[in-house]
């Protein structure tokens, strides 16, 4: 298989893993969870490096995952008090964790290059070069990892489908039929944390943040059905991967950036042209209503004129 295929496949599987979760985050108003996690993992990396003195991917991922979990659970706890809105909760937690990481580096590692870019953030362009020897067969690591994560996420949302659906739309009703919205929310957030960290390692931060939000938001503009929303988000993720890669090759630019940009363009198209919620459809509907009202008024005036 060619390098291009591997890159597109890595991106597509990453997009699948993320787009399976993204719609629930968008519905729950915590779309920026991915961005929060991308900053909050810093203290985990510092801690892992201090304990094990290495930047080996597995150690780094474990350290990062620990703090990703702390981050999402702390946000959920703050939000759960009902005293802080979810967006403000995100904005309180991740700067604090990042600041902790910066202090850690200042105290223990000021004289080596230890930062997110040189430890956890991967680069999708290098996916074809990173292979793993599994019993004599050479496999592409990022494809394997992201494939497993995507499959696990698919299994998770399949198992929890009803619960996720109910708790995303109506937490009070969920409570009344004895689903615990907190437990479901926590499971979802744990999946987000683990997925984000493994995806950072494979494709870098910006692509993860973008693919978690943008396809889901675009899908939200296109449908009212949850199943359709998830499916459309995954599809947009794949289209962004393929088109973005082609675009990146065309202008010789960053692959992750081009993929994120493609997703943004698709969002723009959805915003304008979505059949139900798009700006054009709305404008047409509004114009039609206005014409109908005018016609009705004219007819009424005509009737009155005839009557007089």
């Amino acid at each position: 298989m060619s390098d291009a295929m591997i890159i597109v496949l890595t991106a597509g599987l990453t997009a699948t893993a993320l787009a399976l979760l993204g719609p629930f985050l968008v519905l729950r108003r915590v779309a920026l969870m991915g961005d929060a996690v991308s900053h909050a993992v810093l203290p985990g990396i510092v801690a892992a490096f201090l304990v094990f003195q290495t930047r080996a991917p597995l150690v780094v991922i474990l350290g990062a995952a620990a703090f990703a979990l702390i981050c999402v659970l702390a946000i959920e706890a703050l939000r759960g008090t009902g005293l802080v809105a979810s967006d403000a909760a995100i904005g309180l937690v991740f700067p604090a964790l990042f600041a902790l990481g910066v202090l850690g580096i200042h105290r223990y590692a000021a004289n080596i290059h230890l930062d997110l870019d040189s430890t956890i953030y991967g680069e999708i362009a290098f996916a074809p070069f990173r292979t793993l020897d599994l019993g004599g067969v050479e496999v592409v690591r990022s494809v394997l990892i992201m494939g497993v994560v995507a499959a696990v996420n698919l299994g998770l949302i399949t198992l929890l489908w009803k619960e996720l659906k109910v708790t995303s739309f109506d937490p009070d009703f969920a409570r009344s039929i004895r689903f615990s919205p907190t437990v479901v929310a926590r499971l979802l957030l744990i999946a987000v944390a683990v997925t984000a960290v493994t995806a950072f390692e494979s494709v870098g931060a910006i692509l993860v943040v973008a693919l978690l939000i943008v396809p889901a938001a675009a899908a939200y503009l296109m449908t009212d059905r949850l199943v359709a929303m998830v499916a459309i988000a995954v599809a947009i993720g794949w289209v962004s991967s393929v088109v973005g890669y082609a675009g990146a090759v065309e202008v010789d630019a960053s692959i992750a950036g081009a993929m994120g940009l493609t997703a943004a363009v698709i969002f723009g198209i959805a915003l304008l042209a979505s059949p139900r919620h798009g700006l054009i459809a709305r404008a047409v509907r509004r114009a039609r209503t206005r014409r109908a009202v005018e016609r009705a008024l004219a007819e009424e005036r005509g009737a009155q004129g005839a009557g007089a």
Partner: peptide, 20 residues
Amino acid sequence: PALVAIVVVVLLGAACASDS
């Protein structure tokens, strides 16, 4: 079917690391 699709894609990608 979606799960099967993911598994197939992964096997495809994993089994044949780059032959370029």
